[in-house]
């Protein structure tokens, strides 16, 4: 990918440039290998980090504790995936509700309620203004807080306030849902606001109510446009599930630390867990890229048939990228 997009920076290399590239490639590769050998492999090997004693329980099926270790890790991964799945579903639901609520409140604020008697109209307008302020405040606060802090205070604060969710899993899911729901809500909202104004106008013209227009016209399109950003947010949820170990939810990292206490091989265990995490997340980000390509293709054909909407759509593309950047 980088090859294609970047080759625009330099000419197709001639014989001399090719020679220089080849020589510097070999030099760079040698430097990298030498650096890895002297700075990483040698010190680790001297401390016996590559011994079978440390790796065996993880990679050698003949090892006596291999089964136990992987049962533990399997339980951990199952717990991680359970929490991640619950958090994904609930934050999508919560985010959608929040986005619809904010868009509705915004359109409510624009209405003047002239048909109602003056004091009632004023009261309704004050109420919608207040609600808009409250939701905006909620969004800004929980978007600006670290998700660790949200999870930590969910787990330690709610029981004090007399809210008992039972299993510790639910505190983790709640914390993740608050943070990611707010982020997803903002993604969807900016998707809806980035749509061409004609969409809502057309919906109004055929007599849909404001809520119907949001539900049936704007939201589906926002989902479609923002799909890549949504998928990368799901990667974030999966990564953030690992924070469960802070509130001693028995997900994979907590299970790993039990294993490490017994076997004393932290580097090896974290390498294995990290590789699995990376593989899963890598597949998910590939999926996001694929979705983005598919969408770009769909948009290009749509643009050919309806050139009038080009302006509106190009702004949404930019916004998609901006939001996708936020979702780190």
């Amino acid at each position: 990918m980088s090859n294609d997009s970047m080759s625009v920076l330099y000419d197709a290399p001639g014989p001399r440039a090719r020679r220089i590239t080849l020589i510097s490639s070999i030099l760079a590769a040698l430097a990298a290998v030498a650096g890895l050998y002297f700075l990483v492999y040698r010190p680790l090997d001297e401390r016996g980090q590559f011994s079978m004693e440390r790796w065996g329980p993880l990679i050698d099926p003949g090892n006596e504790v291999f089964g136990q270790v992987w049962t533990q890790l399997g339980q951990g991964f199952r717990a991680t995936l359970t929490a991640a799945a619950l958090a994904i579903v609930s934050s999508l639901a919560f985010g959608t509700l929040l986005a619809v609520l904010r868009v509705q409140l915004k359109s409510l604020m624009r209405r003047r309620f002239d048909s109602l008697p003056a004091p009632v109209a004023l009261a309704v307008r004050a109420l919608s203004w207040l609600l808009n302020g409250v939701t905006r405040f909620f969004v800004e606060v929980f978007r600006g807080l670290p998700v660790v802090i949200t999870i930590f205070f969910c787990a330690s604060g709610l029981p004090v306030l007399g809210v008992d969710l039972g299993d510790i899993l639910w505190y983790l899911v709640l914390g993740l849902t608050i943070y990611n729901g707010v982020v997803i809500g903002e993604i969807l909202r900016s998707g809806m606001e980035g749509l061409p104004g004609g969409q809502r106008e057309a919906a109004d013209a055929i007599g849909l109510t404001s809520f119907q227009a949001t539900r049936m016209i704007l939201l589906p399109q926002a989902f479609r446009i923002m799909l890549p950003a949504l998928i990368s947010q799901l990667v974030v949820v999966l990564k953030d599930t690992s924070l469960g170990f802070i509130i001693s939810y028995e997900e994979v990292l907590r299970k790993s630390s039990f294993i490490i206490q017994v076997l004393d091989n932290p580097i090896q265990v974290y390498v294995v867990v990290g590789v699995i995490y990376i593989a899963v997340n890598y597949l998910l980000s590939k999926l996001a890229e694929y979705a983005q390509r598919r969408l770009a293709k769909g948009r290009r054909t749509a643009r050919k048939s309806k050139p009038a909407t080009t302006g509106g759509e190009s702004t949404t593309v930019q916004e998609t990228e901006a939001v996708a950047g936020t979702a780190t």
Partner: peptide, 23 residues
């Protein structure tokens, strides 16, 4: 690719365990 797909928690654990192991 590696760092973007790895939870920060694991990176932190690595810094805490692997750096001392590297001396």
């Amino acid at each position: 690719t590696v760092l973007r797909n790895c939870p920060l928690t694991i990176v932190m654990f690595f810094a805490a365990f692997a750096l001392p192991a590297l001396g």
